[in-house]
Each structure stands twice: as C-alpha cells, then as structure tokens.
Write a protein that binds this DNA or RNA. Structure first.
Length: 132
RNA sequence: AGAAUAGCCGGGGCAAUUGCUGUCCCGAUUGGGAGAGAGGAAAGUCCGAACUUCGCAGAACAGGAUGCCGGGUAACGCCCGGGAGCCGGAAUCGAAAGUUCCGGUUACGGAAAGUGCCACAGAAAAUAUACCGCCCCGAUUCAUCGGAGUAAGGUUGAAAUGGCAGGGUAAGAGCCUACCGCGGUAAUGGUAACAUUGCCGGUCCCGUAUGGGAUUCCGCUAAUUACGGAACAAGGCAAACCCCAUCCGAAGCAAGGUCAAGCAGAAAGUCUUCCGGUUUUCCGGAACGGGGUUGUUCGCCCUUAGUGCUUUCGGGUAGACCGCUCGAUGUAUGGAGUAAUUCAUAUACUAGACAAAUAAUUGCCUUCCCCGCUUUGCAGGGAAUACAAAAUUCGGCUUAUACGGCUAUUCUAUUU
RNA sequence: GCGCCCAUAGUUCAAUUGGAUAGAAUGUCGGAUUCCGGUUCCGAAGGUUGGAGGUUCGAGCCCUCUUGGGCGUA
C-alpha cells in the first residue's frame, strides 16, 4: 500500500457495504458545512484499515459536476490519508467512511477547485479520529 | 470596416511529477516495465436497425406510424435531386401585374365514400332561405297595410351558391341561346410529381465491377378534335372522426448465457471401545470423539440413532465470469453518379468502466484580451474560459454551445 | 432501460365537442362598520394559461419541439 495511493482495496465497492454503513453509521459535518461524512468503526477487527467512498446525490447537479466533486473528494483524501491510516493500524480499527457534499450544489458552486474541498475533508477526518 | 441573424468547420499542443482503469511482457502472488484511456453533441430518448430471448403453418381484424414524385440506404419519420404552392431579393426605364434568375420554406394523398363542425353577425353557413329591395294586385286615414311573385342589386362575415353578352319578362331568374368554365364517350397523341429534359422491371447491345445506351403491353389520361349532356353542380376544416396506399410479432444487454457459496429438497452411505445388570434394538457407569463455557490449560455441563455427519444429484440465490467491443469501422487514392451514395485497391486498430477509470499540480509553446512604448515589432499583466462526460453497438433527428475561422443575408459608417 | 402523468392569479382548483371580457375560493390593497383590532359587508388590483413555433376565421383546449416537476416497473 503506497503512501499517496488509492487502490481498489481502499475503496468501498459493494452495494452491501454501502447499505450497512448507511443503516448503522454515524453522521458528521465539516466546520464549513460543505461535506458530510457517514462512518462506522470496529475495534480489534481481523482486517484493520480504512476504506472510503464518495457519494453525490443526483439532485446536486449534472453528471459532469458530480463526477468532478467525487474526484476532488478522492484526491483530497488521497493526499491526507496518513492522518487516519497510521492511527487505524496501530489500534486495530476497521474504519469505513462515505463522504458526500452537504451544502454544496451546482447552483451555487458552479466552478469548484481542489482548495475548496481539502480543508473540509481534513476537518472531517480529524473529527472521525477524535470521536473514537 | 463594424454589428446582428442563420448555416458550416475547429473545440488548444507538447512535456514532467503524483494517482486511477484496462491490455501486453517480466516476475511470482507484495510488485516492476511498456503502451492506451470521453464527445460533437457522449445529452434528450424522438425515429430506424443489428444482436438476444420468447411467440409463430398461413391469413385477417384491432392498434400504431408514414403520406407530392423519383432515387439513396441494412433500415428509417433520415438524406439527395426534382415538381407544385407560399415568402423574400434582383433584373425587365417608374407603379401594378406578368416573365426570368437567385435564395428560403412547406404534416403538399383524398372534402363528387360517409358522418360531424363552422360561435357572433347575417335573409341564408350548405336538403336551403328572403331583412332592405324590385314588380303586380287589393285596401286606404295617401303615412302605409295585406296578398302574390322574384333573387338583378345592397347589408353581414374568415368564408355567400358559375362568368360574360344577347334575348326574354310585370319585375326577374340557365328561363332560353352563343362563347368560356363543368362533367361523359371516342379518336389522335401522350404518360414521375396538376402530363413532356426523370426513374424502375424485362429484353437486346457495350463495359473488369458498380454502370452506360436502345425499347413494349396493360392501366391512366393533361392537351387537341368530334359527338352528345343539364341536377349549373364541386364553400372551408381530415394537426375532427374517417377513407385510400404503404410499413410494423413482443420485449429488451438489468436482453441472454456459463460457473456457483449459503438456505431448502431428493438419494445413498456412516455413527467407537470396555465393564456390569435376567434375553434384547433396553438401562447404568467409564474412556475416546464432538459441542458449549473466557483467548489458552484444568475443571464443569451437554451429547453418541439425531430436524446428526459425509458424499452425490437436479434446480438455483448472493457473488464471479462471458455478452463487451473488428465494425452496415476509419483514412488515403482512383472509378461511377447532378447529388445523396456507392465500387475497387492500399492501409490502420483508436476507451471498455460496473457506487462506475480518464484526475491533481506545474513548466514551455500557441491563441485571445488589456495597457504602455511606439507602431515590422517589443516589454508587462490576465485568460484558455462554452455546452457537456461513455455504460450493448451502429445510422439519423432534435436541442445546448465561450472563443476563433469561413459563407450568405440585413443594417450602419466611410471612400471612390 | 422501458412506460406514463402534470404545469392556468401569491396559493388551491375550474373553464361544456376549439367560439371570444379565462372564472371561483383564499390571500393582498382600499373603503364601510368599531373607541381600536378581529368578524362581517362593498369594491379594486393581480394572468403574455411554463417557453417557442405551427394548423385554424379563431387555440388554455389540436399538432411538433423544448423547460421544469412527479409516478410506476425490472
């Protein structure tokens, strides 16, 4: 596992996992209310690690905009994932996070950059860490 | 020269680092290397097909779609060419009309198959009818009133029931006559579209292939001529029902196929040893095995003919894989054709994801904008921005598009 | 992917087979009543019928394209 990578093993892929996280996970919102995170965490799991996904509602915007937001979320996490990875491996945590835009939509944020997303993602990650 | 509108074309390039998804090679399961990775509309899902499963002897009905003519095509509601109507421009000295040329546009079959509708106004809106009129007769208070006839003229409306001339009459009228118009029959001649430069099939000739040239019957008939006709008819609407002609089996890649945990079903097999109690397939005890109890050991509890365990079978869920990208394909050259398109040869392989890859950060070039110097150009600053992302695959249509380029039309300004 | 529906005043709904100033309730505004407010009564304004084009003498209604919203199904 590379330091700045985001391979298949680090992403949530199956429909079952999504349903499980949405039904039993907790919600967090970033300081600027741009990003919402739904997450679950188990201690002493046999497969410790962090897996993430980005989910954008169809009502938020058109396909081009939604794809861009998802890519920017994944990029932000990729560059800052060391915040959670080391912690999870040390304490044997199995963490699952789904990021989604909370107060972001195409109507008010037509042009969106990486620097608009990163602070919110980092903030959410530290909140998840401190809540455990 | 500028602006607006419409149409068409393009829709930045190269390189580096980090990261993602397939493919190939090395390696051996951690990984390394090479090379590839969104569009003109990928969109809307409005049409047409391929492909798959189901149904199907054949035909008809229902339902739906299309609708001037011919061609192209795998097919189409698409495209090309042409006809006709409408609109615009130019020319014809000016105006109107007409003619010619150019451009645009059209859901352009049928209203004598039938049904229905046509508000208000108007006499009357489609078997007819009579408000003002016109004419005659009678009454009369000379203002008019009643009766009979008529439809030339007026009035209404989006739309009004052949035209014109003569005769005729109280006034009029296809009431009568001639001509035009209307419809019937025959002949001549002709025949893509409202009848003349086209095309299809067969046959013959020519050509390496696509193709080129010549030509008939039937049916239908604008025109001309002849004969004869009288109910002078046939208002509009089919994006009202409908009629006619042509076409269409249904559902869709979440189609469909292969493998296949778990659960449930069926079949077969298997279930230890010792001791004691009168026989037993029964009872009791011990050991071994299995399960539970706290991660391990001891201990304790349960259990050994039970909804036990093992194997096999068919169907098949979760899941995985195939379908999945080489195709009515692109590019170049040459030939056929007015064109759409097509034929031959050569050459290329160019995304295949599935909570869904194609991103982030930079540098240089190129293009555009602003400002200054001064105008060949140079320095500085800014921007690369639009519409929008494959989801089985093609052919179209429609809609959205910053900026740049080209073409056409219109307007404005300047010069000659 | 397939199939289907809706859009009319600020809001909720009408509008006969296409026929003329698109109607009602509620809300808004003004007036009357009251010492003031509410209730009640009277009056007024408020619509390019989501948008564009076409058919027709005439379109909210018919046809085509388009925008937004909603539903069913696998």
């Amino acid at each position: 596992m590379t330091r700045f990578g985001l391979s298949k093993q680090e992403r949530i892929k199956s429909r079952k996992e999504f349903q499980q996280i949405f039904s039993s996970g907790k919600n967090l919102v970033s300081f600027d209310k741009k990003i919402k995170a739904t997450f679950t965490a188990e201690k002493n799991n046999l497969e410790p690690g962090v897996k993430i996904a980005a989910a954008v509602s169809r009502k938020a915007g058109i396909a081009v905009w939604r794809n861009r937001v998802k890519r920017l979320i994944k990029e932000s996490y990729r560059l800052n994932k060391y915040l959670l990875i080391d912690f999870a491996e040390k304490d044997q945590y199995n963490i699952r996070i789904i990021f989604s835009p909370y107060l972001l939509n195409q109507k008010y944020n037509k042009i969106i950059e990486l620097k608009d997303i990163t602070p919110a993602i980092v903030d959410v990650m530290t909140r998840v860490k401190s809540s455990l």
